[in-house]
């Protein structure tokens, strides 16, 4: 349901911006790092920009990210075999941000942006996973593996800030490289490096 609402908002925002005179549509892929939990991942973002002034635009976008981390253990303590731990992250995000533009030439421009984010995240963190020693006959277990995890899931708010460098490659086309940080309150924040392609009209 939350994913559906986010998708509808994304489509509505895109439609609004698309109806304006000057704008652009960008699709980008990103590498993501979540420092708090040291997860790595990847994602994509779709964003629309509407120019208000030569140096100022409004941008709205949304995306999907996936991340993971494996903590290697493979050691035995007190006859208990500690198994690897895994963290998993998945998120849908929507953001809106004013964009400051600086253009050094017709071919290259720099954009700086920051704004609010709403995200739906699902995070599963393994707290422990281990294999118990063999049990005597009077103890019955379905499995010798004990698994403990923490699930952090829901809709969260935060902010996004970043910059990107645009390189014009054609009359209506640009390629951009960017870096941004997404800070999410009470959930998983990330820093991202992205590469994208933009169509301008």
């Amino acid at each position: 349901m939350k994913k559906l609402i986010i998708s509808l908002i994304l489509i509505a925002g895109a439609g609004t911006l698309w109806s304006q005179d000057k704008g652009s549509l960008t699709i980008s892929g990103s590498y993501m790092y979540m420092p708090q939990y040291r997860m790595h991942g990847a994602g994509y973002t779709l964003s629309l920009q509407h120019s208000l002034k030569p140096w100022l635009s409004l941008e709205a976008g949304g995306g999907y990210t996936l991340g993971a981390r494996t903590i290697e253990r493979n050691e035995t303590v007190n006859d208990v075999r500690l198994l690897n731990l895994n963290y998993h992250h998945a998120a849908y995000s929507l953001y809106a941000a004013p964009v400051l533009k600086a253009r050094s030439s017709r071919a290259v421009s720099l954009e700086l942006y920051a704004g609010p984010v709403i995200t739906w995240q699902s995070n599963v963190f393994d707290l422990n996973r281990y294999e118990m020693p063999e049990s005597p006959d009077y103890i019955g277990r379905m499995t010798n593996i004990v698994y403990v995890n923490r699930v952090l899931e829901g809709t969260f708010f935060g902010g996004i800030a970043g910059f990107r460098v645009n390189l014009r490659t054609g009359e209506n086309w640009e390629v951009n490289l960017g870096v941004n940080a997404t800070g999410i309150i009470k959930a998983v924040s990330s820093v991202n490096a992205s590469i994208g392609i933009r169509y301008c009209w």
Partner: peptide, 27 residues
């Protein structure tokens, strides 16, 4: 914008968290 940028960067780079729970066995 720069203030927001700094705030978000700080939030995103907070201390890493090691999460674990005890190993429990009993007999």
């Amino acid at each position: 914008i720069p203030i927001l940028f700094l705030s978000v960067a700080l939030l995103a780079s907070c201390d890493s968290t090691e999460m674990t729970s005890p190993v429990v066995v009993f007999d």
